[in-house]
Design a protein around this nucleic acid. Sequence first.
DNA 1: ATGAAAGCGCTAACAC
DNA 2: GTGTTAGCGCTTTCAT
Lengths: 339, 339
Amino acid sequence: MTGTSPRRGGSTLAEVAKAAGVSKMTASRVLRDASGFSSETRDRVLREVERLGYVPNRLAAAFGSDQTSTLVGVCVPRLTSSLFGSVLDSIDHTLSKFGYQTMIGAHEQSPQAEESWLRAILAWRPAGVILSGRKHTPGTVEILRAQSIPVVEIWNLNTSPLDVSVGFNHFDCGYEMGRFMLGRGHSNIAYVGAESNAAGMGEVRYQGFENALADAGVECVAKEVLVDRPGFYAGFYGTETVLSRNAEIDSIYYHDDTMAVGGLFYCKSKGMRIPDDIAIAGWGGMEVASVLPERLTTTSVTTQALGKSAAEALVARIREEPVEDVLVASTRLVPGNTV
Amino acid sequence: MTGTSPRRGGSTLAEVAKAAGVSKMTASRVLRDASGFSSETRDRVLREVERLGYVPNRLAAAFGSDQTSTLVGVCVPRLTSSLFGSVLDSIDHTLSKFGYQTMIGAHEQSPQAEESWLRAILAWRPAGVILSGRKHTPGTVEILRAQSIPVVEIWNLNTSPLDVSVGFNHFDCGYEMGRFMLGRGHSNIAYVGAESNAAGMGEVRYQGFENALADAGVECVAKEVLVDRPGFYAGFYGTETVLSRNAEIDSIYYHDDTMAVGGLFYCKSKGMRIPDDIAIAGWGGMEVASVLPERLTTTSVTTQALGKSAAEALVARIREEPVEDVLVASTRLVPGNTV
DNA sequence: ATGAAAGCGCTAACAC
DNA sequence: GTGTTAGCGCTTTCAT
């Protein structure tokens, strides 16, 4: 910082107060809309605020009083997914309505990255944090407990959360789709997924799926989990890979709709008929499916509701209001004509 | 706050210092990895930090010293777009490498929403902010000037930025595509876009496009800008709308690839051949196009590079290093077989 | 309805 | 290599 430049942030409360001919306390009360001032005083203070372009210093306020800010840390696997994007959008929208500011992190499914992000975030004394998934490092768990800070874990349903959990029941999603595909007469069933990292956010869905097959005495004939970000292209070449290894496959369950759409176009490019030659099922209920000639069989999920519930639960915890420990965001299998 | 609960954040520097048998200053130096302590002292301090689970209070540090935090505010139109998601991902990744924390906002193209977000963010004395688009309220401009804070405007190229601009040359993108479509012999050319709001982030592209047509003495026969979020479905029904009004249309330029893909499937569903009956062009070079049977004619854009450049430019400005005022992220027309 | 004083946890500046 | 002092801008507490 150069010595000549004026203090960043312009004027202070003291300057506003002085200009308005009142004490700092009175000015402070006016700005926080507390009580204890006449409407005449109020007008005088607000006029000076306007004139001086006063911007409150929340750093000082949060530090000086209760040691807690209105900052909230939110960590998601990635920002490029329409599903996580929707959740984050809903969280941010809801939090800002309640007067909180959202600090983000993207851990791309690495618990270590999550932990180092968290350490940096906690130094700002956030009012709470929202994490994705159930896998956290021991360090993460310990530091959260030590800070006794409200935590909401999202995405995966977690019946023994650190604090509060708001998620989808991925196991049931997988199980239900497994049963559905079996019910349509498919028996050479494969799974194609993608995980950038070890945390395995898609794994639970596969487990539910596999269980459904096992309960019917059927084995999943192929499981291909690419080390990649889930997406259209991963679905395309994952399908190529799995079909090249096993020509008997008559149906594929995908990590999500983007991968399913990629797989669908791979199959069509090879002249396969859907669902006669090969059946395809996705997950997520993404918008892209709405324009395809085929109606994709998928599980539609309520990402907006998940985000809103998570943000509301966090705010309730911050305010020490009663909150359900475990909330489930709804999902629904939507039969199309691709299975 | 209940009086019984311990101070959030656990121990303080003073406690660490006392436990280590040194002064606060020495402990502070160790933690900031400054010089001025023996390695023996360092070990003793770090041991106590570990033992006490000390988490530094950046609120106090930022407030007490230079009045500036390592927080950075980043505002984008929305978080559900793969393009903006990619930019944000790249920004966050780059900023965190430099030790900054990202606070987000989503203004969905409303300058007013941007301004109120900005006011809340500036109260945290961020080291800098990144805004999207060129349209800002007078209040936004004034407050930024008054705070004399580093600002990077992204997305739209802006030759007279508030501070620094890193963007795509949308006008050229549109112009180039206009010329390309004309070159392929199309003459009944329409445009289909979508804007949720008045700020009109897609408008410049249209202007370039229209100019290309005008320069060739051709008029754009239809312009349909839906009041909606750009997306697959908006492309689908926007195409339906525009074609129902004008049956002569032989080619359509879309706001982006999602809309183009939506339009493509609408046209195919009506039995039209592409590009013979109707030509289709998008923008963005999105992944979805990689799996279609058609190679979509589009403009591929470097969202990761844009985000990285923007973050780096902001950091340079914060550090008072020399920075180019205007940076252009590259775009490239990629001819496919849909035009 | 308003004001005065104290202090939050940290670091810059200056001693030693 | 280490310690002391002062102060950042605000809010809390307690007077008036």
